[in-house]
Design a protein around this nucleic acid. Structure first.
Length: 302
RNA sequence: GGGCAGAUACCAAAGUGGCCAACUGGGGCUGACUGUAACUCAGCUGUCUUUCGACUUCGGAGGUUCGAAUCCUUCUCUGCCCA
Protein backbone atom coordinates (compact mmCIF):
# COMPACT_ATOMS: atom_id res chain seq x y z
CA UNK A 1 0.00 0.00 0.00
CA UNK A 2 1.40 3.38 -0.99
CA UNK A 3 1.59 5.78 1.93
CA UNK A 4 2.47 9.44 1.89
CA UNK A 5 3.73 10.70 5.20
CA UNK A 6 3.03 14.41 5.35
CA UNK A 7 5.29 16.19 7.79
CA UNK A 8 4.15 19.73 8.41
CA UNK A 9 4.39 22.53 10.93
CA UNK A 10 5.40 26.14 11.29
CA UNK A 11 8.62 27.44 9.82
CA UNK A 12 11.68 26.80 11.94
CA UNK A 13 10.18 23.95 13.92
CA UNK A 14 12.69 21.37 12.68
CA UNK A 15 10.89 19.52 9.92
CA UNK A 16 13.95 18.95 7.75
CA UNK A 17 15.79 17.11 10.43
CA UNK A 18 13.01 14.71 11.24
CA UNK A 19 12.15 14.18 7.59
CA UNK A 20 15.65 12.92 6.92
CA UNK A 21 15.51 10.52 9.82
CA UNK A 22 12.19 9.22 8.57
CA UNK A 23 13.48 8.92 5.03
CA UNK A 24 16.39 6.80 6.16
CA UNK A 25 14.25 4.66 8.34
CA UNK A 26 11.74 3.82 5.64
CA UNK A 27 14.06 4.12 2.67
CA UNK A 28 11.71 6.78 1.40
CA UNK A 29 12.37 9.72 -0.89
CA UNK A 30 11.48 13.23 0.26
CA UNK A 31 9.20 15.52 -1.69
CA UNK A 32 9.23 19.14 -0.61
CA UNK A 33 6.06 21.13 -0.15
CA UNK A 34 7.92 24.29 0.67
CA UNK A 35 6.99 26.83 -1.95
CA UNK A 36 10.21 28.78 -1.52
CA UNK A 37 12.68 25.95 -1.33
CA UNK A 38 11.66 25.17 -4.90
CA UNK A 39 13.87 28.02 -6.01
CA UNK A 40 17.50 27.13 -6.39
CA UNK A 41 18.57 30.74 -5.87
CA UNK A 42 17.03 30.92 -2.41
CA UNK A 43 19.08 28.69 -0.20
CA UNK A 44 20.04 30.48 2.97
CA UNK A 45 16.86 32.49 3.39
CA UNK A 46 14.60 29.46 3.02
CA UNK A 47 16.75 27.22 5.22
CA UNK A 48 16.77 24.70 2.40
CA UNK A 49 18.29 21.29 3.09
CA UNK A 50 22.04 21.30 2.62
CA UNK A 51 23.88 19.56 -0.17
CA UNK A 52 24.97 16.94 2.30
CA UNK A 53 21.38 16.28 3.24
CA UNK A 54 20.12 16.11 -0.32
CA UNK A 55 22.88 13.63 -1.11
CA UNK A 56 22.08 11.45 1.85
CA UNK A 57 18.44 11.17 0.91
CA UNK A 58 16.74 11.63 -2.42
CA UNK A 59 14.95 14.99 -2.49
CA UNK A 60 12.50 16.42 -4.98
CA UNK A 61 11.34 19.99 -5.47
CA UNK A 62 14.40 21.38 -3.75
CA UNK A 63 16.04 23.87 -6.07
CA UNK A 64 13.96 22.47 -8.88
CA UNK A 65 12.96 25.87 -10.20
CA UNK A 66 14.36 29.30 -10.81
CA UNK A 67 13.02 32.50 -9.33
CA UNK A 68 12.45 33.53 -12.94
CA UNK A 69 9.95 30.71 -13.47
CA UNK A 70 6.28 31.31 -13.09
CA UNK A 71 5.21 28.59 -10.80
CA UNK A 72 2.07 28.15 -8.74
CA UNK A 73 0.12 25.79 -6.57
CA UNK A 74 -1.92 24.37 -9.44
CA UNK A 75 1.11 23.40 -11.45
CA UNK A 76 2.70 22.04 -8.35
CA UNK A 77 -0.27 19.79 -7.76
CA UNK A 78 0.06 18.32 -11.21
CA UNK A 79 3.83 17.92 -11.03
CA UNK A 80 3.79 16.50 -7.54
CA UNK A 81 1.07 13.97 -8.28
CA UNK A 82 2.88 12.80 -11.42
CA UNK A 83 6.07 12.49 -9.43
CA UNK A 84 4.36 10.56 -6.65
CA UNK A 85 2.91 8.12 -9.18
CA UNK A 86 6.46 7.42 -10.32
CA UNK A 87 7.92 7.21 -6.84
CA UNK A 88 5.28 4.83 -5.58
CA UNK A 89 6.28 2.36 -8.27
CA UNK A 90 9.50 1.80 -6.37
CA UNK A 91 8.63 2.87 -2.82
CA UNK A 92 5.91 2.04 -0.39
CA UNK A 93 6.47 5.21 1.56
CA UNK A 94 7.16 8.73 0.39
CA UNK A 95 7.60 11.71 2.66
CA UNK A 96 6.11 15.11 1.92
CA UNK A 97 7.75 17.83 4.00
CA UNK A 98 7.11 21.51 4.08
CA UNK A 99 5.06 24.28 5.53
CA UNK A 100 3.35 25.79 2.52
CA UNK A 101 -0.23 25.28 3.51
CA UNK A 102 -1.94 25.51 0.18
CA UNK A 103 0.69 23.39 -1.54
CA UNK A 104 0.19 20.63 0.97
CA UNK A 105 -3.55 20.81 0.46
CA UNK A 106 -2.98 20.74 -3.29
CA UNK A 107 -1.28 17.38 -2.97
CA UNK A 108 -3.61 15.92 -0.36
CA UNK A 109 -6.96 17.26 -1.54
CA UNK A 110 -6.38 18.71 -4.97
CA UNK A 111 -7.29 22.09 -6.34
CA UNK A 112 -9.97 22.98 -8.85
CA UNK A 113 -9.07 23.16 -12.51
CA UNK A 114 -8.27 26.76 -13.14
CA UNK A 115 -6.42 27.98 -16.22
CA UNK A 116 -3.21 29.95 -16.03
CA UNK A 117 -3.74 33.64 -16.43
CA UNK A 118 -2.11 35.44 -19.37
CA UNK A 119 0.24 38.21 -18.30
CA UNK A 120 -1.74 40.88 -20.15
CA UNK A 121 -4.87 40.09 -18.20
CA UNK A 122 -3.03 40.09 -14.90
CA UNK A 123 -1.49 43.44 -15.71
CA UNK A 124 -4.77 44.85 -16.95
CA UNK A 125 -6.52 44.31 -13.61
CA UNK A 126 -3.53 45.45 -11.67
CA UNK A 127 -3.61 48.73 -13.56
CA UNK A 128 -7.33 49.02 -13.01
CA UNK A 129 -6.82 48.57 -9.29
CA UNK A 130 -3.91 50.97 -9.18
CA UNK A 131 -5.72 53.68 -11.11
CA UNK A 132 -9.31 53.30 -9.99
CA UNK A 133 -9.04 51.80 -6.55
CA UNK A 134 -10.53 49.02 -4.52
CA UNK A 135 -14.18 49.96 -4.88
CA UNK A 136 -13.86 49.87 -8.66
CA UNK A 137 -12.58 46.31 -8.75
CA UNK A 138 -15.22 45.35 -6.21
CA UNK A 139 -17.86 46.64 -8.59
CA UNK A 140 -16.29 44.86 -11.51
CA UNK A 141 -16.42 41.63 -9.56
CA UNK A 142 -20.05 42.26 -8.72
CA UNK A 143 -20.71 42.67 -12.44
CA UNK A 144 -18.70 39.66 -13.63
CA UNK A 145 -19.26 37.21 -10.79
CA UNK A 146 -21.97 38.25 -8.31
CA UNK A 147 -21.82 34.85 -6.63
CA UNK A 148 -18.17 35.15 -5.78
CA UNK A 149 -18.70 38.77 -4.82
CA UNK A 150 -20.82 37.53 -1.96
CA UNK A 151 -18.24 35.04 -0.79
CA UNK A 152 -14.92 36.72 -1.23
CA UNK A 153 -13.19 38.97 1.29
CA UNK A 154 -13.99 42.28 -0.37
CA UNK A 155 -11.25 44.11 1.44
CA UNK A 156 -8.60 41.82 0.05
CA UNK A 157 -7.47 43.15 -3.34
CA UNK A 158 -5.43 40.05 -4.17
CA UNK A 159 -8.44 37.80 -3.88
CA UNK A 160 -10.65 40.09 -5.93
CA UNK A 161 -7.98 40.55 -8.56
CA UNK A 162 -7.52 36.84 -8.89
CA UNK A 163 -11.22 36.24 -9.38
CA UNK A 164 -11.36 38.97 -12.00
CA UNK A 165 -8.39 37.50 -13.82
CA UNK A 166 -10.12 34.17 -14.12
CA UNK A 167 -13.38 35.74 -15.23
CA UNK A 168 -11.59 37.53 -18.01
CA UNK A 169 -9.44 34.56 -18.96
CA UNK A 170 -12.28 32.07 -19.24
CA UNK A 171 -15.12 34.41 -20.11
CA UNK A 172 -17.10 32.84 -17.32
CA UNK A 173 -17.58 33.59 -13.63
CA UNK A 174 -14.75 32.39 -11.46
CA UNK A 175 -17.23 30.76 -9.12
CA UNK A 176 -18.24 28.35 -11.91
CA UNK A 177 -14.85 26.73 -11.54
CA UNK A 178 -14.82 26.60 -7.79
CA UNK A 179 -16.14 23.20 -6.81
CA UNK A 180 -14.28 22.79 -3.56
CA UNK A 181 -14.33 19.08 -4.25
CA UNK A 182 -11.75 16.90 -2.62
CA UNK A 183 -9.91 14.65 -5.05
CA UNK A 184 -9.42 10.98 -4.35
CA UNK A 185 -5.78 10.01 -4.27
CA UNK A 186 -4.43 6.54 -4.95
CA UNK A 187 -2.25 6.62 -1.85
CA UNK A 188 -2.88 6.78 1.86
CA UNK A 189 -1.98 9.91 3.78
CA UNK A 190 -0.61 10.20 7.30
CA UNK A 191 -0.39 13.79 8.47
CA UNK A 192 2.07 14.55 11.22
CA UNK A 193 2.22 18.07 12.67
CA UNK A 194 5.22 19.41 14.54
CA UNK A 195 4.83 22.20 17.06
CA UNK A 196 6.10 23.50 20.38
CA UNK A 197 5.18 26.25 22.86
CA UNK A 198 4.85 29.54 21.07
CA UNK A 199 7.54 31.37 22.99
CA UNK A 200 10.12 28.66 22.31
CA UNK A 201 9.19 28.61 18.65
CA UNK A 202 9.65 32.35 18.42
CA UNK A 203 13.00 32.23 20.17
CA UNK A 204 14.12 29.52 17.79
CA UNK A 205 12.99 31.59 14.82
CA UNK A 206 14.88 34.64 16.06
CA UNK A 207 18.02 32.57 16.47
CA UNK A 208 17.67 31.03 13.07
CA UNK A 209 17.45 34.42 11.41
CA UNK A 210 20.67 35.51 13.09
CA UNK A 211 22.31 32.35 11.80
CA UNK A 212 21.06 33.06 8.29
CA UNK A 213 22.69 36.46 8.39
CA UNK A 214 25.94 34.86 9.57
CA UNK A 215 25.76 32.38 6.74
CA UNK A 216 25.54 35.19 4.23
CA UNK A 217 21.88 35.96 3.65
CA UNK A 218 22.79 39.56 2.85
CA UNK A 219 25.04 38.46 0.02
CA UNK A 220 22.54 35.95 -1.27
CA UNK A 221 19.80 38.56 -1.35
CA UNK A 222 22.09 41.13 -2.95
CA UNK A 223 22.79 38.78 -5.84
CA UNK A 224 19.16 38.86 -6.87
CA UNK A 225 18.50 42.46 -6.05
CA UNK A 226 17.89 43.29 -9.73
CA UNK A 227 14.91 40.91 -9.61
CA UNK A 228 13.50 42.25 -6.37
CA UNK A 229 10.11 42.91 -7.93
CA UNK A 230 9.54 39.29 -8.84
CA UNK A 231 6.84 37.60 -6.85
CA UNK A 232 9.25 34.84 -5.95
CA UNK A 233 11.35 37.40 -4.12
CA UNK A 234 8.39 38.78 -2.25
CA UNK A 235 9.56 36.40 0.42
CA UNK A 236 10.37 36.82 4.08
CA UNK A 237 14.11 37.24 4.42
CA UNK A 238 14.54 38.91 1.07
CA UNK A 239 11.93 41.63 0.83
CA UNK A 240 13.09 43.17 4.10
CA UNK A 241 16.69 43.24 2.94
CA UNK A 242 15.64 44.90 -0.31
CA UNK A 243 13.96 47.61 1.73
CA UNK A 244 17.29 48.03 3.46
CA UNK A 245 19.25 48.10 0.20
CA UNK A 246 16.84 50.74 -1.03
CA UNK A 247 17.74 52.82 1.99
CA UNK A 248 14.31 52.67 3.56
CA UNK A 249 15.43 50.96 6.75
CA UNK A 250 18.68 50.17 8.53
CA UNK A 251 20.25 46.76 8.46
CA UNK A 252 19.26 46.09 12.04
CA UNK A 253 15.69 47.12 11.31
CA UNK A 254 15.64 44.75 8.37
CA UNK A 255 16.87 41.87 10.49
CA UNK A 256 14.31 42.58 13.19
CA UNK A 257 11.62 42.76 10.54
CA UNK A 258 12.65 39.40 9.11
CA UNK A 259 12.30 37.91 12.56
CA UNK A 260 8.90 39.45 13.09
CA UNK A 261 7.59 38.50 9.66
CA UNK A 262 8.83 34.96 10.13
CA UNK A 263 7.04 34.75 13.48
CA UNK A 264 3.86 36.09 11.91
CA UNK A 265 4.16 33.61 9.09
CA UNK A 266 4.57 30.76 11.54
CA UNK A 267 1.37 31.84 13.26
CA UNK A 268 -0.50 32.00 9.95
CA UNK A 269 0.66 28.49 9.18
CA UNK A 270 -0.63 27.26 12.52
CA UNK A 271 -3.98 28.95 11.97
CA UNK A 272 -4.34 27.20 8.63
CA UNK A 273 -3.21 23.83 9.95
CA UNK A 274 -5.53 24.04 12.93
CA UNK A 275 -8.48 23.65 10.60
CA UNK A 276 -7.19 20.32 9.41
CA UNK A 277 -8.49 17.69 11.78
CA UNK A 278 -6.51 14.93 10.06
CA UNK A 279 -3.26 16.16 11.52
CA UNK A 280 -1.78 14.35 14.50
CA UNK A 281 0.29 16.83 16.46
CA UNK A 282 3.54 16.26 18.31
CA UNK A 283 6.04 18.30 20.20
CA UNK A 284 8.90 18.66 17.74
CA UNK A 285 11.34 17.13 20.20
CA UNK A 286 9.17 14.14 20.91
CA UNK A 287 10.83 12.05 18.24
CA UNK A 288 10.27 8.75 19.96
CA UNK A 289 6.53 9.21 19.90
CA UNK A 290 6.53 10.49 16.35
CA UNK A 291 8.40 7.46 15.07
CA UNK A 292 6.34 5.07 17.12
CA UNK A 293 3.07 6.54 15.93
CA UNK A 294 4.13 6.46 12.31
CA UNK A 295 5.32 2.86 12.67
CA UNK A 296 2.02 1.90 14.13
CA UNK A 297 -0.02 3.68 11.48
CA UNK A 298 2.07 2.18 8.69
CA UNK A 299 1.49 -1.33 9.95
CA UNK A 300 -2.18 -0.53 10.18
CA UNK A 301 -2.25 0.40 6.51
CA UNK A 302 -0.68 -2.85 5.35
C1' G B 1 23.10 70.92 47.45
C1' G B 2 20.27 74.23 43.68
C1' G B 3 17.37 74.74 38.95
C1' C B 4 14.44 72.70 35.09
C1' A B 5 11.83 68.71 32.58
C1' G B 6 9.26 64.33 33.02
C1' A B 7 6.50 59.75 35.19
C1' U B 8 -0.04 57.38 30.85
C1' A B 9 -1.98 50.39 29.19
C1' C B 10 3.36 44.99 27.06
C1' C B 11 6.64 49.07 24.62
C1' A B 12 6.72 53.92 22.38
C1' A B 13 3.66 57.99 22.50
C1' A B 14 -0.95 61.52 22.34
C1' G B 15 -4.39 63.62 25.65
C1' U B 16 -3.66 68.76 29.74
C1' G B 17 -11.03 69.81 33.94
C1' G B 18 -16.61 66.61 31.46
C1' C B 19 -17.14 64.14 24.30
C1' C B 20 -11.45 59.18 28.13
C1' A B 21 -11.03 52.72 29.15
C1' A B 22 -8.03 56.85 27.14
C1' C B 23 -5.71 59.04 19.66
C1' U B 24 -1.79 56.65 17.14
C1' G B 25 2.33 53.37 16.08
C1' G B 26 4.96 48.99 17.42
C1' G B 27 4.62 44.37 19.50
C1' G B 28 1.22 40.49 20.84
C1' C B 29 -3.28 37.51 20.36
C1' U B 30 -7.19 35.48 17.29
C1' G B 31 -8.99 34.53 12.65
C1' A B 32 -9.90 34.32 6.97
C1' C B 33 -7.62 32.39 2.76
C1' U B 34 -8.52 26.80 -3.85
C1' G B 35 -3.66 29.27 -7.48
C1' U B 36 1.66 35.36 -7.63
C1' A B 37 -0.02 31.96 -0.98
C1' A B 38 6.86 32.82 3.16
C1' C B 39 1.25 36.30 -0.59
C1' U B 40 -2.90 39.10 0.82
C1' C B 41 -6.75 40.48 4.22
C1' A B 42 -9.75 41.09 8.90
C1' G B 43 -10.90 41.52 14.26
C1' C B 44 -9.15 42.00 19.27
C1' U B 45 -5.48 43.97 22.73
C1' G B 46 -7.57 47.23 31.45
C1' U B 47 -11.04 43.48 34.13
C1' C B 48 -15.86 40.93 34.09
C1' U B 49 -19.77 40.07 30.17
C1' U B 50 -22.11 36.71 24.14
C1' U B 51 -24.30 41.84 23.63
C1' C B 52 -26.18 45.93 26.30
C1' G B 53 -23.37 47.25 30.09
C1' A B 54 -20.84 47.16 34.85
C1' C B 55 -16.32 47.84 37.41
C1' U B 56 -11.05 49.36 38.44
C1' U B 57 -7.17 52.60 35.95
C1' C B 58 -3.11 57.32 33.75
C1' G B 59 4.10 56.98 39.60
C1' G B 60 2.30 57.08 45.49
C1' A B 61 -0.56 59.79 49.16
C1' G B 62 -3.70 63.76 50.18
C1' G B 63 -6.64 68.00 48.43
C1' U B 64 -9.78 71.47 45.10
C1' U B 65 -14.28 70.48 42.11
C1' C B 66 -20.95 68.54 40.73
C1' G B 67 -16.87 66.16 37.87
C1' A B 68 -9.54 65.16 37.51
C1' A B 69 -5.03 61.39 33.43
C1' U B 70 -5.73 66.67 33.16
C1' C B 71 -5.64 71.88 38.69
C1' C B 72 -3.08 72.28 43.89
C1' U B 73 0.17 70.15 47.96
C1' U B 74 3.54 66.60 49.17
C1' C B 75 6.42 62.15 48.56
C1' U B 76 9.13 58.65 45.34
C1' C B 77 11.72 57.81 40.92
C1' U B 78 14.03 59.27 36.08
C1' G B 79 16.58 62.70 32.68
C1' C B 80 19.14 67.25 31.78
C1' C B 81 21.63 71.69 33.59
C1' C B 82 24.29 74.54 37.50
C1' A B 83 27.41 73.58 41.77
Amino acid sequence: MAVLIVLLGPTGIGKTDISIQLAKKYNAPIVSSDSRQFYRELKIGTAAPTEKETKEVEHFFIGSHSILDNYNAGQYEEDAINLLDELFKKHNVVILVGGSMMYIDAVCNGLDEIPNVPTEIREFWQEEFKNKGLSHIQQELFRLDPKHYKEVDLKNPKRILHALEICLTTGNPYSDLRTGKKKKRNFEIIKIGLNKPRQELYEQINLRVDKMIEKGLMEEAKQYYPFKNLNTLNTVGYKELYAHFDGEITQQEAIDLIKKNTRNYAKRQLTWFNRDKEITWFHSKDEENIFQTIDFRLKDKK
